Amino acid sequence: MTSGPVLVLGGSGYLGRHICAAFVCAGATVVQVSRNTPDRTVPGAVRMDLAAASPAELARLCADTGARVLVNAAGVGWGGSDRQMEQLNVEFVGRLTEVVAGLPRPPRLIQLGSAYEYGPSRHGETIDEDWPPAPESSYARMKLRGSQAVLRAAEQGVDGVVLRLSVVCGPGTPRTSLPGLVAARLAAGHEELRLAPLRDYRDLVDVRDVADAVVATARAPASLVTGRVVNIGRGAAVPVRRLVELLISYSGRPLRVVEERAAEPSPRSDMPWLQLDVTRARDLLGWTPRRTLEESLKDLLAEVGCGPKDG
């Protein structure tokens, strides 16, 4: 790994917490940056509203910490408004790349993108990094613009790389994600859950495997990763119906699922099938996913206090 501190933007969020923990386990000095109350388990923490941060403030943050690796885990997901997504997923990333390009000793910039940037694929297709992006939802289009800003900066000499993440699950999964929602309802003792029709397929990767991939990216030679897009997923599509059934089964609690058509389709339904090719991650980073889906879901349930059945 490049010597020097690791700066994790959005470090107290779902992905950020696990990324900070993985770098600490790897022996790195970690500086966690977040708008919210910092995680006290991480020795270095800075409170900052990144959406409102000026270029001067961002430059001072990088200079004061001496960061050699900068991970952008900040962003607004599906629950945010278009304006919120524009501010943090697009405008902030643009400012960040300009700041990094102007530093005397620029850190490696690792941008966490999304597999939704690719747009729809046909059932059975596997998406590799050469797939021409054609996103259809506002979220995916804005994530793509952020990724493109990093890739343009890399063309101008910034040591930047984009990790396109598939659907992330595991301990701490937020309720804005289907696994997190189902786990929360099970933990609360609900007897019924109403969902949109469970027809889609998703490539599900454990959040701790994602964190390991970020650490591997920080360690990789610049000649291998600078200016590259790297898919991070499990490499297999799982029916979301099966995902829900497994969570209910592992919890040992009854939950009746009612599928009903929503008044407006979810923007996530623009990708009924998602399966990533993760060959490049193996070849460039030496990374492959290690946790099974069973492990991810059982650990998710355990964290929300809904212990899975023994065995």
Rank of each mutant, 00 (worst) to 15 (best):
H190F: 14
V69W: 06
A236Y: 14
A140S: 12
R152D: 14
A63K: 13
S137Q: 05
F92E: 05
A218Q: 04
P254Q: 08
E155Y: 06
Q84H: 10
S54C: 02
R164T: 06
V304W: 09
P120D: 05
K143C: 12
S12I: 06
A134H: 14
R256F: 11
G160C: 02
G305F: 09
R152T: 06
R60C: 09
V258N: 09
Q84N: 08
G13N: 05
V30I: 11
Y201I: 01
L151S: 05
S251D: 12
S12L: 00
V240D: 04
S81A: 10
G146S: 05
Q156M: 14
V93L: 03
A236M: 11
E295H: 14
L144S: 08
L193H: 08
S269G: 07
L274H: 02
A21F: 08
V90T: 15
R108D: 08
L88Q: 01
P55T: 01
E57G: 07
L243G: 05
L274R: 00
R185F: 05
G80C: 10
A63I: 11
A22E: 08
V304Q: 12
L9W: 06
D200C: 13
E129K: 01
A302D: 15
E155C: 10
L181H: 12
T41V: 15
C20L: 12
L15G: 04
V238E: 13
T29G: 15
D82Q: 14
L50Y: 05
V6L: 03
R208M: 11
S138Y: 12
Y201A: 10
V258D: 11
P38K: 11
F23Y: 13
A220I: 00
N89H: 00
T41Y: 14
R83Q: 15
A22H: 07
R208T: 13
V257M: 07
Q84T: 12
A52K: 10
V31N: 02
L9D: 05
G44D: 05
P272S: 09
D128L: 12
T97C: 07
T279S: 15
I127M: 12
N72G: 06
P107G: 06
A263Q: 13
R35M: 10
Q87K: 14
I127W: 10
E98V: 00
E303A: 14
P254S: 14
G305C: 09
L224P: 07
R228Y: 01
V229I: 15
D206A: 03
S266W: 07
G172F: 07
M48D: 02
A196E: 15
P174R: 04
C306H: 03
E129T: 08
D277M: 10
V240H: 06
A115T: 09
P174C: 10
V230Y: 01
P267Y: 00
V207A: 09
Q32S: 14
G13F: 00
E295N: 13
R68I: 07
D128P: 04
T226C: 09
L243I: 09
S121G: 15
A302V: 13
F92G: 01
Y118I: 13
L9N: 00
G113V: 00
T65C: 11
D283W: 12
R17F: 04
A220R: 00
V46Q: 06
L144E: 00
W287S: 02
Q148N: 13
R145V: 11
F23V: 07
W131E: 15
R241W: 03
P289V: 04
L195R: 02
I110E: 03
V168H: 03
D283L: 15
